[in-house]
Design a protein around this nucleic acid. Structure first.
Lengths: 134, 134
DNA sequence: GTACAGGTTAAAGTTGACTTGAAGTCAAGA
DNA sequence: TCTTGACTTCAAGTCAACTTTAACCTGTAC
């Protein structure tokens, strides 16, 4: 039941207080309760912030994240809508995962083979050349 | 040896001609040869554009991408620099891969369990609840 | 030869995601 | 009571990554 201030939350989440206020202003975060005008949060907000951070890194816009987070206490249509968005996003995440593992391979093989630039490495990976070429 | 115009390249890469000119202006793409003032490309540019697109999605800035692409025909120091950047980036990509697969699990399990919003689903995934709850 | 489709540049505008600044409120401590 | 530190709002500023605009050029088709 511990109640945290905006800067405590910010610190734990690794972001700035202004970011939290901004998220609230665009409805990505709900309005928290207040103590003499100041925001107070419980720790569940951290879960939400973590989700926002990861999905952002995955290329979701804040508008999309807001849609994902907000088909709540609404009718069945919106629940369907969330399923649709989630389905779309799932496809995108899968694609990104594939491509990311290609880049991962490119980078790590590049580090092994000792190519001096990336386009060399692309060739190197495509040709499956493992030998160091200095 | 087919020579393609800027809009043909743009179409194949799924971007706009203006983006290609922009990339050239910030040295992410090399200056192409010209025919009476107009840019002409061969298809290898598509490889480079594909790489740019993926790495961008993975969170690299254009400045970082430029660094990765440009430690070329330069001395050994720059080659080392590219190895350093590649090493750093590899760590980031691995982290992102982990997190992405969490989100993937969240989204796909969310679709299975029929939760009507994401925070329910986070709970659902954490509690390992597989049953549909309507 | 003139219209037109598609290219060119340089500069200004846009968008998303924040950050900063100014001016004010509030509670606790000296 | 007065200062201090941490909060508040609202508006304006910033930054990356493009896009749009305006004015112009060029090769081909009629």
């Amino acid at each position: 039941m511990s109640e945290l201030t905006i800067s405590q939350i910010a610190q734990q989440a690794g972001i700035r207080p202004s970011t939290i206020r901004y998220y609230e202003s665009i409805n990505v975060l709900p309005e928290p309760r207040r103590v003499s005008g100041q925001r107070r949060y419980d720790e569940t907000i951290l879960e939400r912030l973590a989700f926002i951070q990861v999905t952002q890194k995955l290329g979701f816009s804040l508008t999309e994240i807001q849609q994902l987070l907000q088909s709540h206490n609404e009718d069945a249509q919106l629940s369907e809508q969330w399923q649709n968005i989630a389905q779309q996003k799932l496809v995108q995440v899968e694609l990104l995962l594939q491509r990311a593992s290609n880049v991962k391979q490119l980078l790590s093989q590049g580090l092994q083979c000792g190519c001096s630039n990336l386009l060399d490495c692309i060739q190197c990976v495509l040709l499956n050349c493992n030998s160091a070429q200095r």
